[in-house]
Amino acid sequence: MTTVTLHATGPLPPEEVWERYAEPARWPTWAPQITGVQVPVGRLAAGVTGRVRGPAGVTLPFVVESVDEAARRWSWTVTAGPVRVHLLHWVSQGPDAGSTTGLRVSGPLPVVVGYVPLAQLAINRLVRPLDRGHAASRE
């Protein structure tokens, strides 16, 4: 089992960054590795299960393990057969009224190493205004 922690800081306020996490329908607008989300609710809650769709239409089941709205923290586990990856996300006040987000990814070494570049790109986009052309094409 390997764990990697990533961070990104940007100009968006923490409240907006948190809402981008809290509403799964918004994930494809900032996470290029996610092309769709199938979930029975509009907002994250502990115990929620769903499926996340990635490149080539591959869908993976997930379960939301915890959500703390006040602390702007949440965690989930994504599975692919016997492989389980646990992700912990948080958002905090950043410099100059912006925000900092963090992501801790835990799982098998090859999976974590392969996922880290995409995850870093995603959280970098999460804390910045959306490219309107890209957002429109993903919605």
Score class of each variant (00 low, 15 high):
P82F: 14
R84K: 14
R53G: 13
P32G: 07
T49K: 13
I123G: 05
V67P: 03
G133I: 01
T77A: 08
L12P: 08
T77N: 08
L88Q: 08
G102A: 10
P95A: 15
V4Y: 00
Q33V: 07
P82G: 09
S106K: 03
D68R: 07
R51Y: 07
T2M: 12
E19G: 00
D131Y: 10
E15L: 04
T100V: 15
V112R: 05
A70Y: 05
A135I: 03
A70C: 09
I123E: 07
S66G: 11
R138I: 07
P40H: 12
P108M: 05
V113L: 15
D131C: 10
R43D: 09
P117M: 01
P13I: 07
Q33F: 08
E19I: 00
V48W: 01
V64C: 02
R132G: 06
W27C: 09
L103A: 02
P40T: 13
V127E: 00
G42A: 00
A45E: 05
V48T: 13
T49G: 14
D96F: 13
R125I: 00
A8M: 10
R51T: 12
V105K: 03
T49D: 09
L118F: 06
L12G: 01
L121K: 14
R125A: 12
A70M: 08
T5L: 11
R72H: 13
V83C: 09
D96E: 11
T29G: 08
V91N: 01
